[in-house]
Design a binder for these strands. Sequence first.
DNA 1: GATTATGTGGAAGGTGCGTTTCACTTGTCA
DNA 2: TGACAAGTGAAACGCACCTTCCACATAATC
Lengths: 187, 187
Amino acid sequence: MSSGTPRRADALRNRQLALDAATALLAEPGTPLTVENIARRAGLGAATVVRTFGGKDALLDAAVSDLLAPVVQRARDLLAETAPGQALGLFLGELIAFQATHHSVSDHVEGLNMPATAALRGDLARVMEEMVERAQRDGAVRTDIDPAVATGLIGRTALAIARAQPRSRQLVDAYLTVLLQGLRPPA
Amino acid sequence: MSSGTPRRADALRNRQLALDAATALLAEPGTPLTVENIARRAGLGAATVVRTFGGKDALLDAAVSDLLAPVVQRARDLLAETAPGQALGLFLGELIAFQATHHSVSDHVEGLNMPATAALRGDLARVMEEMVERAQRDGAVRTDIDPAVATGLIGRTALAIARAQPRSRQLVDAYLTVLLQGLRPPA
DNA sequence: GATTATGTGGAAGGTGCGTTTCACTTGTCA
DNA sequence: TGACAAGTGAAACGCACCTTCCACATAATC
């Protein structure tokens, strides 16, 4: 997979600078996420940023993937190490915290072609489904909702809450309270 | 408020054609919501569409307001005529149905200046808060969540669900089930 | 029907943005 | 250190939009 000729050291450094700049801007709703702005923040020329990745889409794909990968890993760890019902509750809290920090990502990323990010999203969905399924078997989550549907519900709700302006602690707490009680098996 | 000189008949007709075209395109995610497209659909020139309203923002403000006004009115009617708990459940179902039909509106409208729509949004929020508050007094909704926070939660979740692709009946049902159970007072 | 204020739309203007070009710079390797 | 491939970025380009102009059309009024 790695290219035949090794990249030059400065090119690799600049690649990382561009990624860092893009990540910073993704968490900063104020400034428009243009190639120009990313390049300026990275201290590079716009042409360099684009050429390094092959296009704006690919740059953002790489940046968002880097953000998302640890979240997916965290979900896997929780799934492996923690009791199902508890894992779900914990992960929900962390997921919304993550999305609250990076809440403008989905706005910037709307119509872009981002295969790596899409793949990670798929991975995350699959892990969360497994989490829900185990929680259902454990009696911690109602069984009249399909795990895939519940996962979609959770993910979309988390996203919506994270987008709230202003992001109040109250709203986040209410979201967790309502969602967790709503998912519990009915009395 | 009405302007001193009355508008010409054809201008009024064209205004309505532009509004109808914009509304149609708002419910049609495929085609880009450009002035050009709106004008073509209305059978008008782009210049006419823009000039009639003073700009694209104002046109969309008018179109979205026309869509939203009946929803606000419906909420008011339910609030006046129906038992609090029941009104909330009913309205949630209708709200998500509405947003499912017009789910791409919020995408198109992201950074635009739309005072009339903003005002209606405020009205809707206020009516929904009143609905929640009454449902709380009725014992149908948990009282440990502020009505304004609950309203934000409901609105944002509905929006997120409506955006789901594909919009499945299952997801909508799950949303209503989870949200309504989650809002109920804890046992 | 003639007159005029009002409205129309094709074409041009202007702006923002992603991408490409190309003369110049800088790592890399013998 | 010299030679050359690899990398850089300011400027130019192309494209998609919204908006404005202005010569022409049309409803309203007498």
